[in-house]
C-alpha cells in the first residue's frame, strides 16, 4: 500500500496547530490592558469581570472539557473568599500567600468532594453539586461567629501586592492583580487542555463508557480536574475578598453557581475563552441593564440566554469560530 504523503496531513503538525497561540488570543490580552488607559471609571467593573472570568474558566475545565455538569461551584469560590478573608483578619494581609492558601484550602475540599462527584452522573450529579453548595452556604450562615453571617465578614485588610502596589480607590492595583491572576489561570488551563490529560478529559466528555474499555482510570482523571478546578475557583474567590476587603454570603450562593454556568453557555463551553467572553457579556449587560432597570434586568439575560442556546448552540465564541472556519 503506497501512502500518498503530500495529501496526508502531518499529524504532528496538525496537533501543533491546534495548541498554538492565535492572533485573537494575543489581541485579547492586549485589549485587556485598555481599561488602564481608556475606561478608568470602569476599573472596578473590569476587575470584577477578570475575577469572575477566572471562576468561569475553572468551571469550564470540569463542565466544558470533562463534561461534569455542576451547579455548585460557588462553594469553592466562597470557600476561597472566606479563607482569604479569615487569613487577613487573623493578621496576615499579604495577598499572594493568602491567595495560595485560600486556593489550596478550596482544592482540599474539592478533592474530598470529588470522591462522591465521580460516582454519580446526570441529574444525580447536578443535585449532588447543588447540595454541596447549599450545605456550605448554610454552614457559613450558621457559623456567624466566624463568618459574620448575613452581615458578611468585615475588617478584612489586604497589604500592598509584593509590598509595593497599594490597593487604590480607583482600582488600578485591583485590576492589575486580577488580570494577572486571570492570565496565569488561562495559561495554566491552556497547558492542561493541550496535554494528554486534556485529551483524556475530552474523551470522558465524549464517551465515558468507552474509557474503561481503552484501559482508562477515568475516575482518577475526574478527581484530578475537579481538584484543580476547585483550586482555581478558590483563588477567584480569594481575589474578590482581597480586592474588595469584604466577604458576603452571596459568594457561596446558588445564584453565583447558576450565573457562572449561564456565562459559560453564553460564551461557549469547552474553549476557555468562551468562559471569558461569556463573563464579559454577562457582567457588562448586568452593569448596563441594572442601571436602566434594576428590578427586571434578568429578563434580558433570560432572553439572551434563550437566543444563544437556540441559535448558537456552541455559544457566541463557538459560533464565531465556526463562521471564521467556514470562510477559510
Amino acid at each position: 500500500m503506497t501512502v500518498e504523503a503530500p495529501t496526508l496531513a502531518d499529524p504532528h503538525d496538525w496537533l501543533r496547530r491546534r495548541s498554538r497561540w492565535s492572533v485573537f488570543e494575543i489581541a485579547f490580552w492586549v485589549a485587556s490592558l485598555l481599561p488602564f488607559f481608556l475606561f478608568q471609571t470602569y476599573l472596578p467593573l473590569a476587575s470584577q469581570i477578570a475575577i469572575t472570568a477566572l471562576f468561569a474558566v475553572s468551571v469550564d475545565l470540569v463542565l466544558g472539557y470533562a463534561g461534569v455538569v455542576t451547579l455548585g461551584h460557588a462553594m469553592f469560590f466562597g470557600l476561597g473568599a472566606y479563607s482569604a478573608g479569615l487569613i487577613s483578619k487573623a493578621g496576615w494581609g499579604e495577598p499572594l500567600t493568602g491567595l495560595i492558601i485560600a486556593g489550596l484550602f478550596a482544592g482540599l475540599v474539592g478533592y474530598i468532594a470529588s470522591f462522591i462527584i465521580v460516582r454519580v452522573q446526570h441529574l444525580a450529579l447536578i443535585m449532588i453539586t447543588l447540595g454541596f453548595c447549599l450545605l456550605t452556604y448554610e454552614l457559613a450562615n450558621s457559623m456567624s461567629w466566624l463568618t459574620g453571617g448575613t452581615d458578611g465578614l468585615q475588617g478584612v485588610e489586604t497589604w500592598p501586592i509584593l509590598g509595593v502596589f497599594r490597593f487604590d480607590l480607583w482600582g488600578y492595583a485591583a485590576y492589575g492583580y486580577a488580570l494577572a491572576a486571570l492570565f496565569l489561570g488561562l495559561v495554566l488551563s491552556r497547558r492542561i487542555v493541550h496535554s494528554s490529560f486534556g485529551l483524556s478529559l475530552r474523551g470522558i466528555r465524549e464517551n465515558v463508557r468507552r474509557m474503561p474499555a481503552i484501559g482508562s482510570d477515568y475516575r482518577g482523571h475526574l478527581q484530578k480536574i475537579y481538584t484543580i478546578s476547585a483550586v482555581m475557583a478558590g483563588c477567584a474567590g480569594a481575589l474578590l475578598t482581597q480586592t474588595t476587603d469584604t466577604v458576603s454570603l452571596d459568594t457561596l450562593s446558588f445564584q453565583r453557581s447558576a450565573d457562572v454556568v449561564v456565562m459559560l453557555v453564553l460564551g461557549g463551553t469547552g474553549r476557555l475563552y468562551g468562559a471569558v467572553v461569556g463573563t464579559i457579556i454577562f457582567m457588562v449587560a448586568r452593569d448596563q441593564l441594572s442601571d436602566m432597570n434594576p428590578q427586571y434586568w434578568y429578563f434580558w439575560i433570560g432572553l439572551l440566554l434563550m437566543v444563544v442556546v437556540l441559535l448558537m448552540p456552541r455559544g457566541i465564541l463557538g459560533s464565531l469560530a465556526q463562521l471564521a472556519r467556514r470562510r477559510d
Binding site: P11, H12, W14, L15, R16, S19, R191, I192, H194, S195, S196, F197, G198, L199, S200, R202, G203, M211, I214, G215, S216, D217, G220, H221, K224, I228
Partner: peptide, 23 residues
Amino acid sequence: IEAVLLAICERDRAAGQFWRSLT
C-alpha cells in the same frame, strides 16, 4: 488521530500528565 492517541496515552499511563504538551 486524537482518539487513538488517547488510547495509547492511557496504555502508556501518560494520560494523567497535565504539564506536558500533547505534541
